[in-house]
């Protein structure tokens, strides 16, 4: 297990370096000059040149990349060209909002998704199953910005059950409920589909039939034997969703006024704040890789077959 863990961790290093390179190059290739944003509408060429120099944009691209890469390796993501604040410090400030949002969204997603999936599987083909399918398809189809605005209007503006924004949440999680619900409902819909199909498959297997023949209670068969076995693919989906949520949701954070990573990234993109964009991309990739690494290790831990298979593949 230790060898497997070490191999997987070493394997992430080239991926991170690749991302570092891509994040840098893509920003270099997109049109627009960040010095123009800083300079404003009435700056002459001389001023723009001066600002470009200050931002290090006058240096050749490879020199900029190597100095950036070496700084990142030392744990320094640079400073925002707009506010002058260290990027890492800003990310640390905003990440707690995003974590809260991500975890509560996961909670909604898992609870609603699994329950709906179970109902769908148990009532397979009947009206309740069709209702659950309708819910899933609707959830998947409605874009988050639309559902977000509808929820905001209905539950916050009209019914006033929730605050319209989470800008002053303090330690309470209450202002996160509506945005997390908006974010979670979409992956709940996905989960419901997966749980349903995977549970139907499990429930048709021989060991379930044996369990029924033994006279076990239907609820015990469903939860103890059926659901637990059907949950394996669900863990993968949860892992993927969690890592994307931890990268911040631009739309939900904007609509619900949560100062998380997503909004931070959007603001930086609009202001062409290169160090911030690069920092957020790198941080996001890091989170993604770490969550996936964790899921992989968890799999290997749960099921030694997977570990052996992966080891064999990497030896080849």
């Amino acid at each position: 297990m230790l060898e497997f863990t070490l191999r997987r961790i070493t394997g992430t290093i080239p991926v991170l370096l690749g991302i570092l390179f891509v994040a840098f190059t893509v920003l270099y290739l997109i049109p627009g000059n960040p010095a123009l944003t800083v300079a404003g509408p009435r700056a002459d060429q001389e001023t723009i040149d001066r600002i470009s120099k200050e931002m290090g944009l006058d240096k050749p691209v490879h020199a900029r990349f190597f100095s950036y890469a070496s700084r990142v390796c030392q744990g320094n993501l640079g400073e925002s060209v707009v506010s002058g604040k260290p990027v890492l410090e800003s990310i640390a400030e905003k990440f707690p909002y995003t974590i809260k949002l991500a975890l509560i969204a996961m909670l909604f997603s898992v609870v609603i998704g699994v329950i709906t999936g179970i109902i769908g599987a148990v009532t397979n083909g009947r009206w309740l199953d069709r209702l659950c399918t309708f819910f899933s398809v609707t959830g998947i189809s409605i874009p988050v910005f639309l559902s977000g605005l509808i929820f905001l209007y209905v539950f916050a503006v009209k019914l006033r059950w929730f605050p319209t924004s989470g800008f002053r949440g303090g330690d309470s999680l209450w202002p996160f409920i509506l945005p997390a619900f908006t974010l979670g409902i979409r992956s709940a819909a996905f989960l419901a589909r997966i749980v349903r199909s995977s549970l139907i498959e499990v429930l048709n297997q021989d060991f379930i039939r044996t369990a029924r023949a033994k006279g076990l209670k239907p609820m015990r068969i469903l939860l103890r034997h059926g659901l637990v076995n059907a949950l394996i693919p669900v863990v993968t989906v949860i892992g993927l969703d969690l890592s994307s949520y931890l990268n911040g949701s631009v739309i939900v954070e904007t609509i619900f006024d949560l100062p998380g990573i997503g909004r931070f990234a959007m603001d930086a993109i609009l202001k062409r704040d290169y160090p911030v964009i690069q920092g957020v991309v790198l941080f996001g990739a890091f989170i993604f890789i770490m969550v996936n690494l964790f899921i992989d290790l968890l799999y290997a831990y749960i099921n030694p077959k997977i570990r052996d298979e992966m080891m064999r593949k990497s030896e080849k």
Binding site: P163, S165, L173, W174, I177
Partner: peptide, 10 residues
């Protein structure tokens, strides 16, 4: 946590 903290004073 949600129940204990309740709605925030906004």
């Amino acid at each position: 946590n949600l129940i204990l903290n309740g709605p925030a004073q906004t």
